[in-house]
């Protein structure tokens, strides 16, 4: 229909790559593009790259806000202290545990929700409105709601679960406390996961599913041989984003247990060092380690599952 007259439409861009890049038009376009992205890029780097470099610098000092004048260069001492402290390893283990369990649950439940939303023919507006409510609710509010739900004085969970004594204290020991935290996490983020998977599901061709059905494939075969392989990219991108998000878990822990009974995450530990104890030197070292561990996890997920990042960045 539309004969391409505009010089810079989507198709035009690819053709232009063949043209030598030194024409005046190209130069002008190059300049305009850079000027348009400059403010956004500058702001993003101002609040991330610059402070991160400063953290790197501060992490080499023994620096506490309670005695700012006694700042002293100590080299890698802060890293040695942090890495030889079992607290860091325990919190890392706990964080990875939370990440793996919550993402696994979110993936399975989210996929089930996506299947229902994909097939449902009635009340589509109602279901979409409902699914957006957990997504939109403040994490702190979700944490409070579940903390009070699990509370043995004012909650309802104990009375709804027949095998539990009504005085059972969910926040008294690690196992049940971490379960309560995970419930809040999973509740809030599964809808987001299901929306991402719904988008992936919409891209699977109905014809292919129909064809498999005609050929006598069972429901399970259709799912595992046709639907899932075809939405691989969507699943992987959703897992990558959610896993990194889960690794940063902080709000729910702060609200529900305040780090008691071994529920601290790496983020929580870093926060405690900086804000509660004003240990900027070691806090900065922990910040750097936290940043590196996120990079490592992103790298591992991308490599292990061969995530197609080009599709996440929408480069065609």
């Amino acid at each position: 229909m539309s004969t391409v007259t505009a010089p810079a439409t989507k198709d035009g861009v690819n053709e232009k790559k063949a043209v030598p890049p030194d024409s005046d038009r190209m130069k002008a376009e190059n300049r305009l593009g850079q000027r348009l992205v400059a403010p956004a890029l500058a702001l993003m780097l101002l609040v991330t790259a610059f402070p991160m470099l400063r953290s790197l610098y501060l992490s080499l000092f023994d620096y506490s806000l309670t005695a700012p004048d006694e700042r002293e260069f100590v080299g890698l001492q802060n890293y040695i202290t942090a890495l030889s402290d079992s607290a860091l390893w325990l919190t890392t283990l706990n964080t990875v545990f939370i990440m793996v369990v919550t993402v696994a649950f979110e993936l399975v439940i989210g996929f089930a929700f996506a299947l229902v939303m994909h097939r449902v023919v009635f009340a589509r507006g109602l279901i979409r409105t409902s699914i957006l409510i957990p997504y939109g609710i403040i994490t702190v509010v979700s944490g409070f709601a579940w903390q009070f739900a699990f509370s043995n004085t004012n909650g309802f969970v104990n009375s709804w679960l027949p095998f539990l004594d009504s005085t059972f204290n969910w926040f008294g020991q690690y196992g049940s406390a971490i379960a309560a935290i995970m419930v809040s996490e999973i509740w809030k983020t599964t809808p987001f996961m299901s929306l991402l998977l719904l988008a992936g599901l919409a891209q699977v061709s109905e014809d292919m599913v129909e064809a498999a059905k005609v050929d006598g494939a069972t429901w399970l075969q259709r799912m595992t041989k046709v639907v899932l392989p075809n939405m691989r990219a969507a699943i992987m991108v959703a897992v990558l984003f959610r896993a990194l998000d889960a690794y940063r878990v902080f709000d729910n822990i702060f609200v529900m247990t305040n780090g008691a009974v071994g529920t601290r995450s790496v983020s929580f530990l870093t926060y405690q060092q900086v804000v509660e104890q004003f240990q900027f030197g070691i806090g900065s070292a922990l910040s750097v380690l936290l940043f590196l561990s996120v990079l490592l996890i992103a790298f591992l997920i991308v490599k292990l599952f061969k995530v197609d990042l080009a599709s996440a960045r929408q480069e065609k």
Partner: peptide
């Protein structure tokens, strides 16, 4: 620009607390 945006979407917010503070 696209890579920076992607990296920032994954950035651990807490690691910025001490330098920003």
């Amino acid at each position: 620009v696209l890579t920076t945006a992607l990296a920032i979407a994954m950035f651990p917010v807490v690691s910025l607390v001490s330098p920003l503070f």
